[in-house]
Amino acid sequence: MAESFLVDVPDLHPGVPYAYAAAPPAGYRLVFTAGACPLNARGRVAAPGDVAAQAALVMDHLETALRAAGAELGDVVRSTVYVASTAREDLATAWDVVRSRMGDHPAPSTLLGVAVLGWPDQLVEVEAVAAVPGDALR
């Protein structure tokens, strides 16, 4: 999805690293992902205790899920980033990884610190909604 589908909101603070809103045009279909988790090939959480490494693996898995549906990170119109921590530094670390992977596409996103995530030792999870042309879905 082209960055032009991100909505400019001039009445809100312009210094945030994400768009305040996004609106896919007519003829686009939405792709909803489950929360991408930092699981390795054996189904175990990789890099226990390492927020940055888990965030990187989560983004790899999110890209894989999006590709399977005919989408890519540039098609994301909304994401939610969950970090199992009360330390803002951990949230910032995860956000830096997610934001860098999004490149020039600052889709609207919410960053949350939560008490616990679903897998033992899991610190990061990211879910997304993407928009693709109607015929792009498999």
Rank of each mutant, 00 (worst) to 15 (best):
S4V: 09
F5Q: 10
L6R: 11
L6V: 04
D8Y: 13
D8L: 07
V9R: 13
P10V: 06
P10H: 08
D11E: 14
G15F: 14
A21Q: 12
Y28G: 10
L30Y: 02
V31W: 02
F32H: 13
C37N: 15
P38E: 03
G43Q: 07
R44T: 11
G49F: 12
D50P: 05
V51W: 03
Q54H: 06
Q54C: 03
L57H: 04
M59I: 08
M59V: 11
D60E: 14
L66V: 04
R67Q: 10
A68G: 13
G70V: 00
G70W: 03
G70F: 04
A71G: 01
A71V: 01
L73C: 07
G74C: 02
D75R: 05
V76Y: 05
V76K: 04
V76E: 10
R78L: 15
T80H: 06
V81L: 15
V81C: 14
V83E: 10
A84H: 08
A87H: 14
D90Q: 03
D90V: 03
L91T: 00
D96N: 12
R99W: 09
R99Y: 10
R99T: 04
S100Y: 09
S100E: 15
R101N: 07
M102D: 01
S109W: 06
T110D: 11
L111K: 05
L111E: 03
L111V: 15
V116I: 01
G118I: 09
P120N: 08
Q122S: 09
Q122R: 12
L123C: 14
E125H: 08
A130I: 06
A131E: 07
A131D: 08
V132C: 07
G134D: 15
D135A: 14
A136V: 00
L137I: 14
R138H: 14
